[in-house]
Write a protein that binds this DNA or RNA. Structure first.
Lengths: 213, 213
DNA sequence: GTCTATAAACCGATAGAC
DNA sequence: GTCTATCGGTTTATAGAC
């Protein structure tokens, strides 16, 4: 402890003091690196190097690596739910489905950099953290399932098992990650149109060669 | 070197000597663990524990961890190409596409345990190994692209960009991994029928309300 | 707020006994 | 063919200087 008679004056900070800017940078770097290489393959040192600080400094912004992943995944899922609610789906099931597809793709692929951690990273969460994210995921997918079920009831969709179809549709939508890269040769609008078309046709009844009635 | 006068007799092997059985077990364990947790998250010690040997013993069956992943991915891709060729696709594009979908799903999901390492693990290969697997992948996907292109030419498929559509179809097919578990409540036959239906409708022209001609 | 240094655990891979 | 023991390197996370 410094004795009272030793005058202490505010020192010029030797190294940068950038709490407000470093925090977001840590999250952006982690999101990008986790997405690209996977949680297990990325070290805290790599994240730190990407941000431009030493590894120890990261622990001012997250208590540990696991919490960093959890926070990113939870807020991503939360954001998807909010985007879906903000889309304010209305109209017949066919229209609602199209709005859902567009909202999903725009939220998940809209960022300029890889701004979407794939669902497969959920396996790296502790059981307790997984459960919390799962709650949000259930809310999100139930919204889609409701649309599918409504369309199945009214007959505009040819769907036997709404739950199964919903899982398939989600997997199709997330499959975009396997080939689409923001800023690549294919524009987001094209992707959107493509998936609205494909998913629309997938749930609607097959073309009938002999017109009924 | 042992001198000629020292008699050597075949010794009773103290510990198990199971080269013929341990080899496959190592590959099965690695395949299952890589699929479930991802390459980077699985240690050689975990694989060894799953097989029932000590970590050092694994190196009798693979020179290193990277080669283990490479071998599994390369042979998987090779198997897919062979299964596709064995399917002997024939008939009009619509029929060929259905055969391709069925062959793909049966090959990749047919095993009783998780017998399909997802394509995302390709990112864990060294560049040299990646290139070798990529050669096989290109052969496989080109076969699908040929079918799509033929259907587009003849007009039975409503496809603008055959290359793009092929990527989307592959991602849809591989998306099965995201929700389907062999031995679960959904039977493989159901999955097959579902995807034949969805993919067929996705590439065919949309339903026309006013019959042409 | 960031750095350096370090603790404790774990990693891939090898050597040598049996 | 397998085990035990171990090397050298890396990991997450913390302590303390500045």
């Amino acid at each position: 402890m410094t004795p009272w008679y030793v005058l202490t004056v505010p020192m010029a900070r030797k190294t940068g003091s950038h709490s407000d800017i470093t925090g977001p940078k840590v999250r952006e770097a982690a999101m990008r690196l986790f997405t690209e290489h996977g949680y297990a393959a990325v070290s805290m040192r790599q994240i730190a190097a990407d941000v431009g600080v030493q590894a120890g400094a990261l622990y001012l912004y997250t208590p540990n690596k696991q919490t960093l992943l959890f926070t990113l995944l939870f807020e991503q899922m939360q954001g998807a739910v909010e985007a879906m609610k903000a889309a304010d789906l209305k109209g017949p099931p066919e229209a609602q489905l199209e709005q859902f597809v567009r909202a999903h793709l725009r939220f998940h692929m809209g960022g300029e950099s890889g701004s979407f951690i794939p669902y497969t990273e959920l396996r790296n969460l502790t059981p307790a953290n997984y459960e919390k994210v799962e709650v949000m995921r259930r809310i999100y997918e139930t919204a889609l399932e409701d649309i599918v079920a409504a369309g199945a009831r009214s007959g505009v969709f040819a769907v036997e098992d709404s739950k199964l179809t919903t899982l398939v549709l989600i997997s199709i939508l997330n499959g975009v990650l396997a080939w689409y890269r923001p800023g690549g040769r294919v524009k987001l609008d094209t992707v959107e149109a493509h998936y609205v078309d494909i998913i629309g046709k997938a749930v609607r009844p097959a073309r009938v060669d002999v017109p009924a009635e």
